[in-house]
Nucleic acid binder design. Structure first.
Length: 269
DNA sequence: ATGACTTACAGGGTAAGA
C-alpha cells in the first residue's frame, strides 16, 4: 500500500483558477485535496472537469464568497458533515467533512476577521471557538482525523517574513493565535511545523505586497493531525511553483504524506 | 499610503480578501 498525499489549497475562485488547478492535479497527483474559497454556487462547481481529471468530489458552495470542497483520486469521499456545528444561523460555507481512505477529513475556511476590532473579527473568534469545541469532540473520538484548510492565522512571528506591517491585522492578533495554540494543546499537531521545526515556510503571498520575492510570505494554511494520525506522518511541503502559474491563486497547495495505517492486531480469543 | 492586486457580481462600481 503506497503512501497517501493530502493537500489543502485556497483556490481563490475555482472557475477562474480551473486551468491552474488541473495543471497542479496532473503534476502533483495528490490523493486527497481540500479546497477553499470556491467563490461559486453548488451548481457552478466544475464537477465534470474534476471528474475528468480522475477525482470525485463533495462540495459546499456559496455565491461570490467562501465555498469548500474535498476531492479524492479514484475514490468517492463519503460526506460526513456540511457546515461547522454550534450555530445553526451561520450561513457561510466554510466547513465540509468526509471519510476518505480510512481518514476523517475536515476541510475548513476560517473567517479572515479584518478589519479588527469589529463584527468581522468577532465572527472570526466565535467561529474559532466553535471549531475548538468541535475539534475536541473529534480528538476524543479516537478516529484518525485531519483538519486541513485556510486557518487565516499566522501562528507565530516565525510564520511571516516581517510582522511589522501586519501587526494590526486579524491574522496576527494574540486572540487569533491563542485559539490556534488551544487546538495544539488539545493534542492536534501542526504537521508542517512538526516536519520543519525551524524552517521558514510560507503558503500565501499577497497580491499587493512584494509577492514576487518568495521570501515575503505568510504561513496560514495548516494541516492539523489528531494523535492517532501523527505516527504516520512521513513528509510535508508546499508546492510553491503553483503560485507562479499564470493567473495564480495567492495561496499555494500545502501537503502532507502519510504512510499506510499499521495493521492492528486482533485481540486473541 | 483609505496605495499597489484580484475575484465575483453585474453590466459599473462595490465588497471582500489577508
Amino acid at each position: 500500500m503506497p503512501n497517501l498525499r493530502l493537500a489543502t489549497f485556497n483556490i481563490n475562485g475555482i472557475r477562474s483558477r480551473l486551468p491552474a488547478l488541473l495543471t497542479w492535479l496532473r503534476k502533483a497527483a495528490p490523493d486527497i485535496v481540500c479546497l477553499q474559497e470556491l467563490k461559486a454556487t453548488d451548481a457552478a462547481f466544475p464537477v465534470a472537469a474534476i471528474n475528468d481529471a480522475g477525482y470525485a468530489a463533495v462540495w459546499l458552495g456559496q455565491s461570490a464568497w467562501n465555498g469548500v470542497a474535498i476531492l479524492a483520486r479514484d475514490i468517492e469521499p463519503i460526506e460526513s458533515r456540511r457546515g461547522l456545528p454550534g450555530d445553526s444561523a451561520d450561513r457561510q460555507s466554510r466547513y465540509i467533512e468526509a471519510a476518505v481512505s480510512g481518514l476523517l477529513v475536515g476541510c475548513l475556511y476560517l473567517p479572515n476577521g479584518n478589519p479588527q476590532p469589529g463584527p468581522k473579527f468577532d465572527y472570526k473568534l466565535a467561529w474559532f471557538r466553535r471549531l475548538i469545541e468541535y475539534a475536541q469532540l473529534l480528538a476524543d473520538s479516537g478516529h484518525p482525523v485531519i483538519l486541513a484548510g485556510d486557518y487565516n492565522v499566522v501562528p507565530t512571528d516565525a510564520d511571516i517574513y516581517n510582522p511589522r506591517s501586519w501587526v494590526d491585522n486579524a491574522l496576527l492578533q494574540p486572540q487569533s493565535r491563542e485559539c490556534f495554540s488551544e487546538l495544539l494543546k488539545l493534542g492536534w499537531t501542526d504537521a508542517l511545523r512538526h516536519i520543519y521545526p525551524d524552517q521558514r515556510i510560507y503558503t500565501y503571498w499577497d497580491y499587493l505586497r512584494r509577492r514576487r520575492g518568495t521570501e515575503f510570505g505568510l504561513r496560514i494554511d495548516h494541516l492539523l493531525l489528531s494523535d492517532v494520525v501523527l505516527p504516520r506522518l512521513r513528509d510535508a511541503g508546499v508546492d510553491t511553483w503553483v503560485r507562479d502559474l499564470p493567473n495564480a491563486s495567492d495561496h499555494a497547495p500545502t501537503w502532507i504524506e502519510l504512510s499506510p495505517p499499521k495493521r492492528t492486531m486482533r485481540p486473541a480469543r
